[in-house]
C-alpha cells in the first residue's frame, strides 16, 4: 500500500519529535490513583481514544486531504483550538505540533510543511501537523487519521508503563485490543468535524501543570 512506510515512521514512538515526554494526562491520572493497574489504564485509553483520539483523527484526515492550502490549515488549526477546552492541553498540543513540523521538515522536505510553518508560525496543533506531515510522507488521509488515533493513546500507555512499572506486554495487549477503526471516519465537510469533549482529560491536564513534581511535559 502506498504511504505505508510513512505511516510506520510517523506512528513509531521513536520518531524524534518530542512525543516521548508527553503522557496525555496519564501521569496526573497515575498520581491521583485514577490509573493504578492495567484495567484502569485500558478504561483510560478507551476514553482517550473515543474523545481526543476521534477528534485528532478527523483533524489529521482533513489536514492531510487539504492540498497545499495555507488558509485551509490556518482555519483547521482554529477548529482544533476551539475543540480543546483546557489551555494546558492546547499548549501541549501546539508544542508537540511545532516539534513535529520541525522534525518532519527535515525528514520529508516539502512545500506543504514549509507552508504549514508559515500558516501557523507558533506551532500548529499536533493533529494538523500530523496530517500535513503524513501528506508530505506520502500517506493517505485514512493513514493520517490512523496515525492520529494510534498516537493519541500510545504516549499515555508508555507513560503508565514507566511510572507504574506495569508489564509492558500486558499494556501492548491493551493497545492491540483498542477499536482504532471505530474512531476514524472519512471527512468531507468541516462543519461535520466531531467535537467530543473529555472534561476529565481537561482537568487532569490543568492539574498536571500545577503539580510540583512532574516527569512529563503533559
Amino acid at each position: 500500500m502506498d504511504g505505508l512506510p510513512g505511516l510506520l515512521l510517523l506512528a513509531d514512538s521513536r520518531l524524534p519529535a518530542g512525543g516521548h515526554a508527553h503522557s496525555g494526562g496519564a501521569e496526573e491520572a497515575c498520581r491521583i490513583g485514577a490509573i493504578s493497574g492495567p484495567e484502569d489504564l485500558a478504561r483510560f485509553l478507551r476514553g482517550r481514544l473515543a474523545t481526543a483520539g476521534r477528534v485528532a483523527a478527523a483533524l489529521a484526515w482533513s489536514a492531510c486531504a487539504a492540498a497545499d492550502a495555507e488558509s485551509a490549515w490556518r482555519l483547521l488549526d482554529a477548529e482544533a483550538d476551539a475543540r480543546i477546552a483546557s489551555p494546558a492541553q492546547r499548549l501541549a498540543s501546539r508544542t508537540q505540533g511545532r516539534l513535529l513540523v520541525r522534525t518532519a521538515k527535515r525528514i520529508w522536505p516539502s512545500a506543504a510543511l514549509a507552508a504549514l510553518a508559515r500558516a501557523v508560525p507558533d506551532g500548529a496543533h499536533h493533529p494538523i501537523a500530523l496530517g500535513v506531515a503524513a501528506q508530505a510522507a506520502g500517506c493517505t488521509p485514512h493513514q493520517a487519521a490512523m496515525a492520529a488515533a494510534y498516537t493519541s493513546v500510545t504516549g499515555a500507555a508508555t507513560a503508565a508503563v514507566r511510572l507504574l512499572g506495569l508489564d509492558p506486554v500486558t499494556v501492548h495487549r491493551v493497545l492491540a485490543e483498542l477499536p482504532y477503526d471505530s474512531v476514524i471516519a472519512e471527512q468531507h465537510d468541516w462543519s461535520a468535524l466531531p467535537a467530543h469533549a473529555a472534561p476529565a482529560l481537561d482537568l487532569l491536564a490543568e492539574q498536571h501543570l500545577r503539580t510540583e513534581v512532574r516527569l512529563f511535559v503533559s
Binding site: 521513536r14 520518531l15 524524534p16 519529535a17 518530542g18 515526554a21 508544542t95 516539534l99 520541525r102 522534525t103
Partner: peptide
C-alpha cells in the same frame, strides 16, 4: 531527551 529524541532540547 539528549540522545534519541532531541526535539525538545533543540527547541
Amino acid at each position: 531527551a539528549i540522545r534519541d529524541d532531541i526535539a525538545a532540547n533543540i527547541d
